[in-house]
């Protein structure tokens, strides 16, 4: 199939960006979206043009490195799927595809479609952990954990930190990302001692990074490749309020 791509090109963080239009031909429907971009880049290199920078790594939907706003939807039109697992058979011959980077003040563009998501790391560094120094652990079965809690914790922990929630949110809010971690650790007995300190520290860092606020539109859940529920955000709000009332 033949496609027309409108791709955001930007030299570096401070440079002005613009859209460039490219034609790609003879794209196989079996290709992944990123392989289609590989083909474009090979052709660009062979023509002596600077290839398009986009981030990717595991290409099996788990590392969270790939991003891309594909026709206005993070990770493209396929529900619960990262861009690397999106395949070209979801598109039609002759389609026009607009490809943009994640857009948020907290995610500055480094080049083309590559953005800096280190704000997420800084939020985790403030409290997205259980303090258990190596060597302190009791036996793994010392504290049984009810299966529903363990399952919910797992579902929240499935977050891959890709930033699609921020990209999808009309306010560029990181609430789903933060809430997923707050819930994951806050549900487990091991996470109780730091539960309220954690939520306070993480939410405050989230605010400091310049993310927007949650206005409950839930596009984050719709865009999340791991389909993490906004239920976690309610839980974070509750924990945060409790923490504030208790003076944490």
């Amino acid at each position: 199939m033949n496609l027309t791509l409108h791709i955001w090109r930007q030299e570096n963080t401070t440079a002005e960006g613009r859209f460039s239009t490219y034609r790609v031909e003879e794209i196989s429907p079996d290709m992944s979206f990123l392989e289609m971009l590989d083909v474009l880049n090979e052709r660009l290199i062979n023509k002596g043009e600077v290839p398009v920078e986009f981030e990717h790594d595991c290409r099996e939907g788990i590392c969270g490195t790939c991003s891309l706003m594909v026709n206005g939807v993070p990770h493209g039109p396929e529900k619960g799927t990262t861009t690397c697992q999106l395949h070209m058979r979801k598109f039609k011959d002759g389609d026009e595809i607009t490809i943009e980077p994640w857009r948020a003040k907290a995610f500055p563009v480094l080049k083309d479609l590559v953005v800096d998501r280190s704000a997420f790391d800084r939020i985790i560094q403030k409290g997205g952990y259980i303090s258990a120094n190596t060597g302190n652990a009791p036996d793994g079965n010392a504290i049984p954990i009810p299966k529903p809690d363990a399952d919910w914790a797992f579902e929240a922990a499935a977050c891959i930190g890709c930033g699609a929630c921020v990209a999808a949110c009309k306010n560029a809010s990181a609430s789903l990302f933060v809430a997923a971690k707050v819930t994951h650790l806050g549900l487990l007995p091991q996470g109780q001692p730091e539960r309220y300190l954690r939520v306070t520290a993480m939410v405050e860092q989230m605010d400091q990074e310049g993310f927007g606020s949650c206005t409950n539109t839930y596009d984050c859940e719709g865009a999340c490749p791991k389909q993490i529920s906004v239920r976690n955000i309610a839980r974070m709000n509750r924990d945060y309020l409790k923490a504030k009332i208790m003076g944490n």
């Binding site: 036996d139 793994g140 079965n141 994951h184």
Partner: peptide, 22 residues
């Protein structure tokens, strides 16, 4: 043996039985 203990303490959500055990 220590690895599993350490990971559980960190909050790794391993699969569990209905009993709550790993």
């Amino acid at each position: 043996l220590n690895i599993i203990d350490q990971c559980v303490a960190q909050g790794v959500p391993f699969a569990r039985e209905y009993s709550g055990y790993l």
